[in-house]
Simulated assay, not measured.
Amino acid sequence: MTTEMLQIGGYALLAGGVVGAAGAGALRLLRGRSILVHILLLLAVTVLAVVAGVVTVAQAMFLSGHDLRVVLVTVSASAVVSLVAGGLFGRRLAASAVWARAARERERRLESGRRELVAWVSHDLRTPLAGLRAMAEALEDGVIDDPATTAEYHRRIRVETDRMTRLVDDLFELSRINAGALRPTPTAVPLREVVSDALAGVAPLAASRRITLVAPETGWPVVWAGERELSRVVGNLLVNSVRYTPAGGTVRVEAGHDGGDVWLAVADTCGGIPDGDLARVFDVAFRGEPARTPGREDSGAGGGLGLAIVRGLVEAHGGRVGVRNGDGGCRFEVRLPAAEAVTVR
């Protein structure tokens, strides 16, 4: 009996080994394919190894054709169940792998953005701090005694202090957004008032660069949003467009309804954004070409955080923001819930 069992086991191992070797070769050839393909192939090899072992043992033991067919039907039914279950499991595993790769890629981009942010902020703080220290030491030591130069030093100290204050405010706002601590209190906000205040705030910068600000007098909708956050969104978009529009250009603000949403668009004549940069415009610390590095008093530089803050604030309201090129410049568009649509609900 023992010898017979060993003989049966030998036949089964031989047949299964041949199928297994063929399956290993197939796996090697398909090593670049998806996880689902690998799982289905492994299940198929397992089933074929069982079938080969059964057939070989049946032939060696001279089983009747009827008994062999019964065994093969049973094995086939089990194989169908195994392949279906394996396919479902493989699809879920493949989807999980895709999600994991996407998560790793997103984490890589975030880490790269954090490194860029640290580098940019370090530069944006170190440079004005060095200037502030030099001017303060010159005033303290009495090296400067010319009233006009002294007044200019005081003015420069105030300008650089204001710029660093804006940078610190942006960092604080961004940290609240990333930590999920931002809790806007939406109300019905007349968009015309918010845009009017933002235009008044950016008017001196636009005038110094001879940029024309255009906005319609009527047709402004009412949006459902936090007034402070919405003012920050509009202000950041306007400053960004004015900063990168060449002298003599135009920045236009428009708004309207689209179903239950309100859209707000800020269009400029900056010449457009390279296609490769469009997807990164709202990333933290992204500034694009070197020409966007702060170097002018009117730059309003904020470490490349302005548009990242816009996206964070808009998404905190359940809205969307995007950008596209057209008409000699780029067009930023924000979509938020309309106050009427929220009230009706």
Rank of each mutant, 00 (worst) to 15 (best):
L6F: 05
Q7V: 07
G10C: 03
A12F: 15
A24D: 09
G25Y: 14
G32L: 08
I39C: 04
L40W: 07
L41K: 04
L42E: 08
T46S: 13
T46W: 15
A49V: 05
G53Y: 11
V55T: 09
A58T: 03
S64V: 02
H66D: 13
L68E: 11
R69G: 07
T74F: 02
A77F: 14
S82T: 12
V84D: 08
V84T: 10
G86P: 12
F89V: 15
R91Y: 09
R91A: 13
A95P: 10
S96P: 00
A102P: 00
A102V: 07
A103S: 14
R106G: 02
R108C: 00
S112V: 12
G113L: 01
L117R: 10
V118M: 11
R126T: 08
R126S: 12
A136M: 09
E140M: 06
G142L: 02
V143A: 15
I144K: 00
D145Q: 14
T149G: 00
E152R: 13
H154E: 08
I157M: 15
T165S: 15
V168C: 03
L174R: 07
R176K: 14
G180P: 14
L182S: 06
L182C: 00
T187P: 01
A188I: 05
D197K: 11
A198I: 01
G201V: 00
L205I: 03
L205P: 00
R210T: 03
E217G: 15
T218Q: 13
G219S: 08
W220A: 06
V222H: 05
A225I: 01
G226P: 00
L230F: 09
V234H: 01
V239K: 13
V239C: 08
N240Y: 04
N240C: 02
V242I: 10
R243F: 02
R243P: 09
V251N: 01
R252Y: 01
V253T: 11
E254Y: 02
E254W: 00
H257C: 00
H257K: 08
G260L: 01
L264R: 06
D268I: 02
D275R: 13
G276C: 02
G276M: 01
R280T: 04
F282H: 04
D283S: 12
F286D: 01
F286H: 10
G288T: 05
G288C: 09
G288P: 08
G295L: 03
A301D: 11
A301Q: 05
G302R: 11
G304K: 00
G306V: 03
G306A: 15
L307K: 02
I309A: 07
V310N: 02
R311Y: 04
L313M: 07
E315H: 09
E315W: 06
A316K: 07
G318P: 12
V321R: 06
R324V: 14
N325A: 08
G326I: 05
D327L: 10
G328C: 12
C330Q: 08
F332R: 01
R335P: 11
V342T: 03
V342I: 11
T343G: 01
R345Y: 03
